[in-house]
Amino acid sequence: MLQLTRTMVHSDKLVELESETYSALGLYDSGRGNSQTPRVLSLLSSILERSIQKNESSLKASRKQDVVTIFHGCRAPSMSIRQYIERIFKYSSCSPSCLVMAYVYMDRFLQRMEASLTSLIAHRLLITSIMVAAKFIDDDCYNNAYYAKVGGVSTAEMNKLEMKFLFILDFKLHVTTEDFRKYCLQLEKEAAGVHRTVRLNQAYRPEKGGPNKGKTFTTSYSFRGK
């Protein structure tokens, strides 16, 4: 009985901790109609930008060639990662949780491809992973043509990126509660200034479509493929 009581207390504390973490990241806020930027956006941007910087420095120092994928471009886009995620979040109105899911998917993709997150791959990987996450967990989302316009690629390329992405992940898009919590904690550590090497730092390792809602754009953005 005592053990059961301890387990229940531990469980309650864990739920409370999760609730506080999710609230701090802004995951309880709805993306649609919400003018505030969730904290998870800035933290994810920071982690990705730092990972890109570390990976590119490591690859340059080692003079190693990175794995080239369909997501790679000829040159790095002029738009920063932070600006790009803000643009996607603004125009897609995806839920904040989609950003965490996209973070998980990107990590899985890079591990399976044994590739590094660099400025040549990050933008296409972001728009694809966020779109896939929105289709998987949001009640409704925009179609590929809309996301292509938001991301600065053609609809044909968006379709190809999505299919390649899904096949690499073996169409396994489910994320357990434990994994979701783990990635949220990584984001929280970013906020606390604890810079751990996460899986997205690959250079340090060996070796459903929704309707187009007809939104208008105040900015335009595009980048060339490889």
Rank of each mutant, 00 (worst) to 15 (best):
L2V: 14
V9K: 07
H10Y: 05
S11G: 10
K13M: 15
L14T: 15
V15L: 14
S19K: 15
E20P: 05
L25A: 05
G26C: 05
Y28T: 09
D29A: 09
S30G: 13
N34G: 08
R39D: 11
V40M: 03
L41K: 02
L41H: 11
S42D: 06
I47G: 06
I52R: 05
Q53I: 06
K54N: 08
S57T: 12
S58Q: 02
A61E: 08
V67E: 00
V67Q: 03
G73H: 00
C74K: 00
A76M: 00
R82L: 00
Q83E: 09
Q83S: 04
R87T: 00
I88L: 01
Y91V: 08
S92N: 02
S95L: 14
S97H: 05
S97I: 04
C98D: 03
V100G: 05
V100E: 01
M106L: 14
R108Q: 01
S116E: 04
I121K: 01
H123F: 03
T128C: 08
M131K: 10
M131H: 11
F136I: 10
I137L: 08
D140W: 09
N143C: 13
N144W: 04
N144G: 07
G151P: 02
V153C: 03
A156N: 08
L169N: 13
K172T: 11
V175E: 10
K182F: 14
Q186R: 15
E188C: 15
G193S: 10
H195L: 08
T197R: 08
V198T: 14
L200Q: 06
N201I: 12
A203M: 05
K208E: 04
P211K: 07
N212S: 12
G214Y: 02
F217I: 01
R224M: 10
